[in-house]
Design a protein around this nucleic acid. Sequence first.
RNA 1: UUAGCAGGUCACCUUAUCGCUGCAUGUAAAACUUGUUUUUACAUGGAGAGGAAAGUCCGGACACCAUAGUGCAGUAUAGCGGGUAACGCCCGUCCGCCGAGAGGUGAGGACAAGUGCAGCAGAAAGUAUGUACAGGUAAUGCUGUAGUGAAACCAGGUAAACUCUAUGCGGUGCAACGCCAUGUAAAUCAGUGUUUAAGGGUGCACGCCCAAACUGAAGGGUAGGCGGUUAGAGCUUCUAAGUAAUUAGUUGUCUAGAUAAAUGAUAAGGACCUUUAAACUUGUUUAAAGUUACAGAAUCCGGCUUAUGACCUGCUUUUAUU
RNA 2: GGCAUUGUGGCCGAGUGGCUAGGCAGAGCUCUGCAAAAGCUUGUACAGCGGUUCGAAUCCGCUCGAUGCCU
Length: 128
Amino acid sequence: MNQSFPKIEKLKSKKQIEQLFSEGKSISIYPLKLVYLKIKLKTEKPIQTGVTVSKRNFKSAVKRNRIKRLLRESYRLNKHLVFNTLEGEYAFMFLYLGREMPIYQELETNMIKVFQKLVKKEKNEKSN
RNA sequence: UUAGCAGGUCACCUUAUCGCUGCAUGUAAAACUUGUUUUUACAUGGAGAGGAAAGUCCGGACACCAUAGUGCAGUAUAGCGGGUAACGCCCGUCCGCCGAGAGGUGAGGACAAGUGCAGCAGAAAGUAUGUACAGGUAAUGCUGUAGUGAAACCAGGUAAACUCUAUGCGGUGCAACGCCAUGUAAAUCAGUGUUUAAGGGUGCACGCCCAAACUGAAGGGUAGGCGGUUAGAGCUUCUAAGUAAUUAGUUGUCUAGAUAAAUGAUAAGGACCUUUAAACUUGUUUAAAGUUACAGAAUCCGGCUUAUGACCUGCUUUUAUU
RNA sequence: GGCAUUGUGGCCGAGUGGCUAGGCAGAGCUCUGCAAAAGCUUGUACAGCGGUUCGAAUCCGCUCGAUGCCU
């Protein structure tokens, strides 16, 4: 099972990010929020992902960095849940909405829940 | 021991598994300009945040604007001597102030160039004036004291008030700037041309440059890519000079280059510290729980300032003991 | 990342070094049968720390917060 998370799977294009926020749908399970959009990507990977933490909630750069690292880590270890089950190409953006420092285990269970919800939702849309 | 002063050091460690970003080497594939080229993938090796990376408060390097000019304006600094690429920094020293002391601290030139300012109180605060008491005189604020105030018988105070003196400072900042790709300009370049009117190059004056029109060439935006971008006023060993800051020679060494922004996650063990409980030798041991403080490079250096955990060394005052 | 501006009661907003104006809002009183309006009274401020000065909202330095500009 591939658990790597190289540069090419990161969402970087400013245009695509703007498009994602203006047109994308979202799933939120507190304190996580996933904004996603079915989009044509330039790379051959099925998903590109980004991660953000608000400067308003966490002033310290050290804390923001740590949360983003934890988010990336939990995505990296659980992305197999969506990598092969979804059809088409997607752009993801994870937001951390909480105001307290997270604990890794809780973050991971939330991440899994988000993925399960996402897969269900997309299947329903397809059948409709 | 208690209280304090000064200086210095470190910034949790080890192992395993899964990952991230450069670099080097090798293998494979693709592309063509067939090169020990470029791109992609994999493997191996090695590297990967700080003492403040922070605030952006000073000073430089570097880049462009005229190889940045002159005067004014503006602005910064201010005992004396030294160090430095430079500084508002550092070292030494004199003086003032604070402290019992170790020590700390000071924008510390000039009010005998000119101008301004001083509420309340007080007779009087700037062309001085005249209360009470005492003394004195031919006579008089003529002399002393008191009282008000930060400052008062007349000279002063104040320049982190204007100002003067001396010295320094052109402006903008790596989102500077250069190249490539894309490419419909009034913008750019070259040639011809040459007048001053507006205008531009931080404010004003001067100076310099550009600037009409025609012909030819070429092509800006799209937050695309590459360079700038990390080997440097670098770190380090020893010796010499110097009270010191520092300098000279010498030995060894290569030490992050990300760009929605790389150092992480999990598990085990250990160290440190904190809290709680128990035991007794009263400051140690054992057990349990928690777990490192401040904080994340963004062009690069030298300082300053601010935030902050632990340890070590030297010194001072008082008291006690030997 | 770089460069600027700014901070005065709950809110808005004056303030040449000498007791910090004014308006709105709040509270109390008067007026009224009750309210509104009006009038009177009243509480609450110089972002923080240090320096210069006899004396700082004001001058100087540092810190904290807020806002804007540059691709």
